[in-house]
Every structure is written in structure tokens, then in C-alpha cells.
Design a binder for these strands. Sequence first.
DNA 1: AACAATTGCAACCGCGTTTAA
DNA 2: CTTAAACGCGGTTGCAATTGT
Length: 309
Amino acid sequence: MGRAPCCDKANVKRGPWSPEEDAKLKSYIEHHGTGGNWIALPNKIGLKRCGKSCRLRWLNYLRPNIKHGGFSEEEDNIICSLYVSIGSRWSIIAAQLPGRTDNDIKNYWNTKLKKKLGGKQPPNQVSHPNILSSMQTHHHLITDPTSTSISHLNLNACTTQLPISPTNINHHHDDMISFQLPQPHHSLFINSTNLPSSSATTENNTNTNTSSHDSPTIFQAAFQSFPINHHDFTHFVDVKTEQQVLEDAMLDLAMDMDLGIIMSSTQTITTSPSSHITSQSHHPFISQTQTIMPQFHCAFHDATYFGMQ
DNA sequence: AACAATTGCAACCGCGTTTAA
DNA sequence: CTTAAACGCGGTTGCAATTGT
């Protein structure tokens, strides 16, 4: 037995809205509000429309400050980065773009951005719907309970300091060191675009000419080095703000899952051996400034949990 | 010019979640 | 606590406009 229909389909108008219908709906809501009941709204106004249809029309077209078309490059970047991070959570993505609706962004993605990105897939659909709640649960992130917006995440609990001692540091080159992480399943910030092209083994590689340190654009830097043979890549430590930590953790997680790269029990980190750990950090989508800190923070997540469950 | 294919987007559908009785 | 109604979201569809042959 299915759910009861929200309205009498035989007695409601469907299809495109007329200017008169728009005017009625807009005028009524501006003067009286929705009354918290969309289903009852059409009757009050005298519209032969389904309540859900009224809601959609208002949210997507009639409410104030709605923007249509003309997506900026910055908006492209935000959409792409969030899509790679959290998948098709259009309402969350729309919440980051004032004036944009989830429907608009969804259409824009499906018709424009997806093609430009060459068909890159979002995170594992099995896992990603719970990514935010999982991160909150397992890393004690505190969120504003009234908001699902990523920007409200409290990042303070998302960082930890790695105990680096002389015993687990290995010197490889004059300018490079590596060391082992002490705990299993801690994955790191892995920015594929940090990888020198010579160390990133690529398959079906058709475009590796662009320097990874160029100012990244979504179409130039993103996934440029993918797919990577995971036996042959080196993790570069990023030193970054806590805000960046979360953004990158989410993006890197998405990429790990997309690529099937699951963190093993130990990780090698390579960075430059100065008194301050510094590393160039180019996110696939988000350009970020260089940060230098006397000690670095490392956000971690349980890759096994996210990737395998 | 005619037709087919493709594109872009508004609107609908169905289902999971939330709310209120 | 239970359950039905309503909400909100993401996926899909339908169709007009545009482009290609």
C-alpha cells in the first residue's frame, strides 16, 4: 500500500505557471506568509495547484533575492568542491550560495559542470549520505543544531597533534624527510595536486603538463594527476588553519573513496625539514595561502570507517 | 527548409524525515 | 508511544529552444 497522494491529482492544474498564478501566490505569501501549511495554501489563495507545487514555485522562483543563471567562477568552484566532498547534497550546497536554489544548482551541475569535470563521480554513494553526521559522531564535532551548513561546523575538536620524535623520522634526501604515523587508520591530507608529476604514476594520463603549483582552477588542477597508483604516491603534509583542515579532510576523504585508496595501518609523510614545517598546499579546488606554523596540526579521520562501511 | 538530435530547465514524483495530534 | 500528515529533498521527466545534418 502506497502513501496517500498529497492532493487530488485530478483537480489540480499542472505544468508551467502563468504570470497570474505567480502574482497570486507571491502577493499572498508576502502579505500573509505561508501559514506553515503548504497543502492548505492553494485553497486559501484560490489556486488550483498542489501545495507542493506552490512551495516549489515560491522557493525556486518567487521568493526575494533569487538569482538565475550567470554563475560566477567562484560559485563554480564552490559547487564543484562541495560536490566532490559531499555528493549531490544540493540543499547543503545551495546553502553556501546565497540566492541560489538547490534546483538551480542541480540543473547547472547536470548540464554544465559535470561535463567540464569530465564525469568525475561524487563520493561513494553508500557512505556519503552520512558523512556529516559520521564526522560529528566520530570526531566529536559540534554543530549548530539548527543548521546543516558545513560552515557552521566547529572545528576545534577536529585536530590533534602528532607525536613526532627523532626515532620515527627518516631522512631521505637533503631536503626531504619522512616519518611513520603511530596509529592505524589515520589518514592525512592528501592533495594529489601537490604531487610532483614525476612521482605520480598516472594511468590514461593525457594532461600532466600543467604545473601543480599553478594557481589551480577547477578544470586544470582538479584530478589532474588522477588516477594515481597508490603504491607510488607520497603524502605531503599541509599546514593549514582549522577551517582548511575540515574542508580538506572532507575533500580528501571523498577522493580517497572515489579512488579506492584506503589508508593502511601506517602512513609515510614527507615534508621539508626546516624548523618550521612548511609545505605548498594547493587544493584541487580551493586555492589557499601558505601557512607556517611551529608545529603542525593534523586532522584525521577513520578511513576504514568511512571507506569500507 | 525539414527533420533529428541535443540541450537546458521548470516542474513533478516518490520517499525519507519531521511534526503534531 | 503511535501514526498519519506534511515537509523537504534528490532524482527524473517533459518539453521548448537550439543546434546539427
